[in-house]
Structures are given as structure tokens and as C-alpha cells.
């Protein structure tokens, strides 16, 4: 029980003090989980992160589940996950409550008029970073372009693109492997 509480608190601290999630959480995880508590080695943490990045769900949550699982099985995974999301739920609920009642204040609307272009820049920058990491060759670029064009002009669910691209990845890479021997 004490371990579960420790898992919850450690991850609540990580969730409450990092902005942006995902990769922004890595340094904090390193300090809290590897250096301070020794719950995982550096290599293990990177492995969890790599898997967290390519399995469905939110990277920070996936990593928390992994470490919780390793320490205390299913209850540990749940305690760590609840810990990492708890600060978000509290903070965002408070903000959402305030924003709803402040929505009619002109200054709030003006602020969002400026925030929206800033968000465009942030998202665009994220696209560049993700592109650099995931578009490793011509086929990947083609999949990227095909999905982008189809998603822009059609109303097909994103899930369909994700699933098709997964199958396509297996076919392309598998075909490439066999090609030289054939």
C-alpha cells in the first residue's frame, strides 16, 4: 500500500511540474524515477519511452503505466497512471470553470486572438520535429503526403489512416526485405 502511494505521489509530482507532456517529461522522469528513487535504470526508461511513443495513448501515461507495472503489477500501473493525470484533472477543471465564466470578458477574447497565432507556430514546430523523426525515407514521406492529402479532402476517420499505414508499413518493409533475394 505504501509503495502504491509512493508511485502515485512521485508521478503526481511529475505530472504537476512539466508542461507539454511527452518528451518534455523525460528529464523530470529521469530525475525522479531513475536518480532519486532508482525504480528503473536509464536504459529501461528509454525503452519504456520508445514503446510509449509507438503504442496507442499518451506517452507520459504509457511510461507511467510501465514503471508502475514493473514495481507493483496492475495496481502499481493504475496508481502511477492516476498520479500522472491527477494534477491535470484538478488544474484544467479549475481553468475550464474560470474560462467559461470569463469568456465574455473582452480582454480574454483579445488574449485568445493573440494566443491562436502563437499556437499555430507551436503546432507547426511540432510537425517539423515529428516529421524529422518519422520521415526517414521516401516511402515514409509518401505515406505522410498521402495521409495528409486524404485527411484534408475527405472525412475518413483518422483511425482508418493509422491502421492502413500500419499494414502498408509491413507490406513495404517486408517487400523491400524480400526483393534482393528474389
Amino acid at each position: 500500500m505504501k509503495m502504491l502511494l509512493q508511485l502515485f505521489l512521485a508521478f503526481a509530482k511529475i505530472g504537476g511540474f512539466t508542461f507539454g507532456g511527452g518528451l518534455a517529461m523525460l528529464p523530470m522522469m529521469q530525475r525522479e524515477i531513475v536518480e532519486k528513487r532508482g525504480w528503473a535504470t536509464q536504459d529501461e526508461l528509454f525503452d519504456y519511452y520508445a514503446i510509449g511513443q509507438c503504442t496507442p495513448g499518451i506517452i507520459a501515461v504509457n511510461t507511467a503505466t510501465f514503471i508502475g507495472c514493473k514495481k507493483k503489477g496492475l495496481p502499481g500501473g493504475i496508481a502511477a497512471t492516476f498520479g500522472v493525470v491527477a494534477p491535470s484533472v484538478v488544474i484544467i477543471t479549475v481553468i475550464a470553470a474560470c474560462i467559461q465564466s470569463f469568456q465574455d470578458v473582452p480582454a480574454v477574447q483579445w488574449a485568445f486572438d493573440g494566443i491562436r497565432p502563437a499556437v499555430v507556430a507551436l503546432v507547426f514546430n511540432a510537425v517539423l520535429q515529428i516529421g524529422k523523426k518519422s520521415l526517414t525515407d521516401l516511402f515514409a514521406v509518401l505515406i505522410f503526403l498521402a495521409v495528409a492529402v486524404l485527411a484534408f479532402f475527405t472525412n475518413v476517420s483518422p483511425a482508418v489512416f493509422v491502421l492502413c499505414a500500419g499494414v502498408l508499413g509491413i507490406l513495404l518493409k517486408g517487400g523491400k526485405r524480400r526483393a534482393p533475394s528474389a
Partner: peptide, 18 residues
């Protein structure tokens, strides 16, 4: 291999959101 295609698709979807 599946993740190779999947990551590219994910990037495409985020680009459209952008």
C-alpha cells in the same frame, strides 16, 4: 515495420490539424 508506416501517418494527421 507497422510502426514505420504508422508514425508517418501520424505525422500526416498532425500536419492537417496544423
Amino acid at each position: 515495420w507497422a510502426f514505420y508506416g504508422l508514425r508517418a501517418a501520424s505525422a500526416g494527421l498532425i500536419a492537417v490539424s496544423c
